[in-house]
């Protein structure tokens, strides 16, 4: 009995550790398609001291391809890239956004109101960098209506 039990234990341990090794290796392999970081262009933009943007101001950022808004409820950033074919949309205080290429229209919140654009303009994450600068992350979308409050 004792002999058989020990033999059994050895066999089970061998198979168990082999499965554990295989499982760990598989976990490592499955992580490969999702690298921690890709060598694409950097899309986190530091915009400087938040105090330089007055309440009620709208700033078009050409290099960053976004509009930065500041109202009483805080900051928000809306991508200026049309969701149809990537033209840069124009903004007017009253009517919202309009694309010059194929006439897509968006309301002041970036929702589609007309034209071929399939979805609304993306709202981008606004935050504060550790050195106290306003920072927009062009890679992270937030839900429409999210505001970032400083202080």
């Amino acid at each position: 009995m004792f002999d058989a039990g020990r033999r059994d234990f050895l066999g089970l341990a061998a198979i168990g550790s082999a499965l554990a090794a295989l499982g760990t290796a598989l976990a490592g392999v499955l992580r490969l398609p999702k690298p921690a970081v890709l060598p694409g262009p950097m899309r986190v933009y530091k915009l400087g001291d938040p105090a330089q943007f007055a309440v009620g101001s709208v700033v078009k950022m050409d290099a960053e391809q976004l509009y930065l808004f500041r109202d009483e409820r805080g900051f928000h950033a809306i991508s200026s890239v049309c969701t149809h074919l990537g033209c840069i949309v124009a903004h007017s205080e009253r009517e919202g956004f309009a694309c010059p290429c194929h006439g897509s229209k968006f309301d002041t919140q970036g929702k589609v109101t007309g034209g071929p654009a399939p979805t609304g303009l993306a709202w981008l994450e606004v935050s504060l960098s550790p050195d106290g600068q306003l920072q927009v992350n062009g890679e992270t979308e937030v839900s429409r209506g999210t505001r970032f409050q400083v202080g």
Partner: peptide, 21 residues
């Protein structure tokens, strides 16, 4: 048990692999 040696080999090699991983 004739398979005893193979079980040891499997156990040790898989433990070493697991350790590296």
């Amino acid at each position: 048990d004739p398979s005893r040696a193979y079980k040891w080999i499997l156990l040790i090699s898989s433990l070493v692999t697991l350790g590296f991983l």
